[in-house]
Protein backbone atom coordinates (compact mmCIF):
# COMPACT_ATOMS: atom_id res chain seq x y z
CA UNK A 1 0.00 0.00 0.00
CA UNK A 2 2.73 2.43 0.75
CA UNK A 3 4.82 1.02 -2.02
CA UNK A 4 7.88 -0.21 -0.17
CA UNK A 5 9.07 3.29 0.68
CA UNK A 6 11.19 2.05 3.59
CA UNK A 7 12.94 -0.41 1.34
CA UNK A 8 13.65 2.30 -1.17
CA UNK A 9 14.96 4.41 1.67
CA UNK A 10 17.28 1.58 2.53
CA UNK A 11 18.55 1.47 -1.03
CA UNK A 12 18.92 5.23 -1.00
CA UNK A 13 20.90 5.14 2.24
CA UNK A 14 23.26 2.53 0.89
CA UNK A 15 23.72 4.49 -2.31
CA UNK A 16 24.37 7.71 -0.43
CA UNK A 17 26.89 5.99 1.77
CA UNK A 18 28.67 4.51 -1.22
CA UNK A 19 28.62 7.91 -2.86
CA UNK A 20 30.30 9.38 0.18
CA UNK A 21 32.94 6.70 0.18
CA UNK A 22 33.70 6.91 -3.51
CA UNK A 23 33.34 10.58 -4.35
CA UNK A 24 34.06 12.57 -1.21
CA UNK A 25 37.65 13.39 -0.56
CA UNK A 26 37.67 13.70 3.19
CA UNK A 27 38.43 10.74 5.39
CA UNK A 28 35.84 11.66 7.97
CA UNK A 29 33.31 11.85 5.17
CA UNK A 30 34.34 8.34 4.22
CA UNK A 31 33.72 7.25 7.77
CA UNK A 32 30.34 8.98 7.79
CA UNK A 33 29.52 7.23 4.55
CA UNK A 34 30.22 3.88 6.09
CA UNK A 35 28.05 4.82 9.06
CA UNK A 36 25.26 5.67 6.68
CA UNK A 37 25.56 2.37 4.84
CA UNK A 38 25.43 0.64 8.15
CA UNK A 39 22.31 2.57 9.15
CA UNK A 40 20.74 1.54 5.90
CA UNK A 41 21.46 -2.11 6.51
CA UNK A 42 20.11 -1.86 10.04
CA UNK A 43 16.95 -0.23 8.80
CA UNK A 44 16.64 -2.95 6.21
CA UNK A 45 16.83 -5.68 8.80
CA UNK A 46 14.23 -4.06 11.01
CA UNK A 47 11.95 -3.35 8.10
CA UNK A 48 12.15 -6.98 7.07
CA UNK A 49 10.86 -8.02 10.44
CA UNK A 50 7.97 -5.60 10.59
CA UNK A 51 4.46 -6.96 10.47
CA UNK A 52 1.68 -4.54 9.86
CA UNK A 53 -0.14 -3.67 13.04
CA UNK A 54 2.23 -5.77 15.08
CA UNK A 55 3.48 -5.12 18.55
CA UNK A 56 6.96 -5.76 19.88
CA UNK A 57 7.59 -9.39 20.87
CA UNK A 58 7.54 -8.58 24.56
CA UNK A 59 5.00 -10.18 26.83
CA UNK A 60 5.34 -7.75 29.70
CA UNK A 61 2.21 -5.62 30.01
CA UNK A 62 1.04 -6.73 26.61
CA UNK A 63 -2.43 -5.61 25.53
CA UNK A 64 -4.74 -8.57 25.78
CA UNK A 65 -6.10 -8.50 22.25
CA UNK A 66 -2.85 -9.34 20.45
CA UNK A 67 -2.92 -12.54 18.44
CA UNK A 68 0.14 -14.70 18.96
CA UNK A 69 2.30 -15.08 16.94
CA UNK A 70 0.80 -13.20 14.00
CA UNK A 71 0.30 -10.01 15.92
CA UNK A 72 3.92 -9.56 16.83
CA UNK A 73 6.81 -8.33 14.78
CA UNK A 74 9.65 -10.75 14.17
CA UNK A 75 12.24 -10.84 16.92
CA UNK A 76 15.22 -12.28 15.07
CA UNK A 77 15.95 -9.27 12.84
CA UNK A 78 15.90 -7.09 15.90
CA UNK A 79 18.47 -9.27 17.58
CA UNK A 80 20.58 -9.19 14.45
CA UNK A 81 20.31 -5.43 14.27
CA UNK A 82 21.44 -5.08 17.86
CA UNK A 83 24.57 -7.00 17.02
CA UNK A 84 25.03 -4.97 13.90
CA UNK A 85 24.75 -1.69 15.81
CA UNK A 86 27.46 -2.73 18.23
CA UNK A 87 29.65 -3.71 15.35
CA UNK A 88 28.98 -0.33 13.81
CA UNK A 89 30.17 1.47 16.91
CA UNK A 90 33.25 -0.69 17.14
CA UNK A 91 34.19 -0.10 13.54
CA UNK A 92 33.47 3.59 13.80
CA UNK A 93 35.64 4.00 16.86
CA UNK A 94 38.50 2.16 15.29
CA UNK A 95 38.24 4.04 12.02
CA UNK A 96 38.18 7.39 13.73
CA UNK A 97 41.17 6.57 15.87
CA UNK A 98 43.01 5.66 12.71
CA UNK A 99 41.88 8.93 11.17
CA UNK A 100 43.29 10.82 14.13
CA UNK A 101 46.58 9.03 13.70
CA UNK A 102 46.62 9.70 9.99
CA UNK A 103 46.08 13.37 10.60
CA UNK A 104 48.87 13.35 13.13
CA UNK A 105 51.31 11.94 10.62
CA UNK A 106 50.15 13.36 7.33
CA UNK A 107 48.69 16.64 8.47
CA UNK A 108 45.79 16.33 6.11
CA UNK A 109 42.59 14.41 5.69
CA UNK A 110 42.47 14.51 1.93
CA UNK A 111 42.27 11.07 0.39
CA UNK A 112 44.31 12.12 -2.58
CA UNK A 113 47.23 13.09 -0.41
CA UNK A 114 47.13 10.07 1.84
CA UNK A 115 48.70 7.60 -0.49
CA UNK A 116 52.25 6.90 0.42
CA UNK A 117 51.41 3.29 -0.24
CA UNK A 118 50.79 2.83 -3.89
CA UNK A 119 52.05 0.95 -6.90
Amino acid sequence: MIFNIPFIAVAALIIIGLYAVIFRKNLIKTVIGITIIESGVNLFLITLGYREGGVPPIYTNLPEDVSIPRGMVLPVPQALTLTSIVIGVAVLALMLSLVIHIYRVYGTLDVRRIRRLRE
Binding site: Y59, T60, N61, E64
Partner: peptide
Protein backbone atom coordinates in the same frame (compact mmCIF):
# COMPACT_ATOMS: atom_id res chain seq x y z
CA UNK B 1 9.08 -19.97 34.13
CA UNK B 2 6.75 -17.00 33.87
CA UNK B 3 3.07 -17.24 33.36
CA UNK B 4 2.65 -17.81 29.65
CA UNK B 5 0.97 -14.91 27.93
CA UNK B 6 0.75 -11.29 28.92
CA UNK B 7 1.88 -10.56 32.45
CA UNK B 8 3.57 -7.92 34.49
CA UNK B 9 6.85 -9.73 34.58
Amino acid sequence: IPMVGSNTG
